[in-house]
Computed example of a mutant assay.
Amino acid sequence: MAGITYVMTHPGFRSIKVGYARADGSRIDQLVRRGWQPYRSLIVQSPQMARRIEQATLFDLRYRIYVPVHLTRAHMGRAGGWTETVSAELISPSEVWYLLCEQAGMEQLSPVVKPVWQPRGPLRGHRRQRGDTPRFVRAARIEAARTARAAQVGAPNQTKPKAKQTAAKKDTQ
């Protein structure tokens, strides 16, 4: 069974979507009914390969080029897929297609070149956090954890203002 990796655009949202589907599935038709326009698609050997190509492309977009998620769950509705969107104002569909083709080439054409990341299942107890980390990309989870730790270290300590308030109360009494 073949798989499809695709790039779609939505002129109303000014957004680009990267996704994958089974060749016999109705995913692309479902998105077309919601206003998405197919830009280009690539037929690959299996849906699993299409997913690996999609996840590698999303990893490049999020953690190498630093393009954030563009739409929210409310925009996409029941169709889902909001985590695979990027703003058309930050990157063009042709650039996204180039990244997708680069990842597809590494995945299926060269027996020597291996991708930097290794697709694995989620760690036991790991939960995906609001779509900001591609699901099976270990390097993305590590980078997200480092970013979260750096944000926590830079956060101000909340216990100091309470101590100041206590000292101020003692001075007034």
Score class of each variant (00 low, 15 high):
Phe59Val: 14
Phe59Asp: 15
Asp60Glu: 15
Asp60Trp: 09
Asp60Gly: 13
Asp60Lys: 15
Leu61Phe: 09
Leu61Val: 09
Leu61Asp: 03
Leu61Arg: 12
Leu61Thr: 14
Arg62Val: 13
Arg62Asn: 12
Tyr63Val: 13
Tyr63Asp: 08
Arg64His: 09
Arg64Thr: 15
Arg64Asn: 10
Arg64Gly: 11
Ile65Val: 12
Ile65Asn: 12
Ile65Lys: 15
Ile65Ala: 14
Ile65Glu: 13
Tyr66Trp: 07
Tyr66Ser: 14
Tyr66Arg: 15
Tyr66Phe: 13
Val67Leu: 10
Val67Glu: 14
Val67Gln: 12
Val67Ile: 14
Val67Trp: 03
Val67Cys: 09
Pro68Leu: 13
Pro68Gly: 09
Pro68Glu: 12
Pro68Ile: 11
Pro68Val: 12
Val69Asp: 05
Val69Phe: 00
Val69Asn: 04
Val69Arg: 07
His70Trp: 08
His70Ala: 09
His70Leu: 07
His70Thr: 02
Leu71Gly: 01
Leu71Ser: 02
Thr72Arg: 05
Thr72Trp: 02
Thr72Ser: 13
Arg73Asn: 07
Arg73Glu: 06
Arg73His: 04
Arg73Lys: 06
Arg73Pro: 02
Ala74Cys: 02
Ala74Gly: 06
His75Glu: 04
His75Pro: 01
Gly77Tyr: 00
Gly77Thr: 01
Gly77Arg: 00
Arg78Ser: 07
Arg78Leu: 11
Arg78Glu: 03
Arg78Tyr: 02
Arg78Trp: 02
Ala79Gln: 03
Ala79Pro: 01
Gly80Thr: 07
Gly80Gln: 06
Gly80Leu: 04
Gly80Glu: 04
Gly80Asp: 02
Gly80Trp: 05
Gly81Trp: 00
Gly81Tyr: 00
Trp82Arg: 06
Trp82Tyr: 15
Trp82Gln: 08
Trp82Thr: 03
Thr83Gln: 08
Thr83Lys: 07
Thr83Ser: 03
Glu84Phe: 05
Glu84Leu: 00
Glu84Trp: 03
Thr85Tyr: 05
Thr85Phe: 04
Thr85Cys: 08
Thr85Ser: 08
Val86Trp: 06
Val86His: 08
Val86Tyr: 05
Val86Ala: 06
Val86Lys: 08
Val86Gln: 09
Ser87Thr: 06
Ser87Met: 08
Ser87Lys: 05
Ser87Gly: 05
Ser87Val: 10
Ser87His: 02
Ser87Glu: 05
Ala88Ser: 10
Ala88Ile: 10
Glu89Pro: 02
Leu90Ser: 07
Ile91Trp: 11
Ile91Glu: 13
Ser92Met: 15
Ser92His: 13
Ser92Asp: 14
Pro93Phe: 12
Pro93Trp: 10
Pro93His: 08
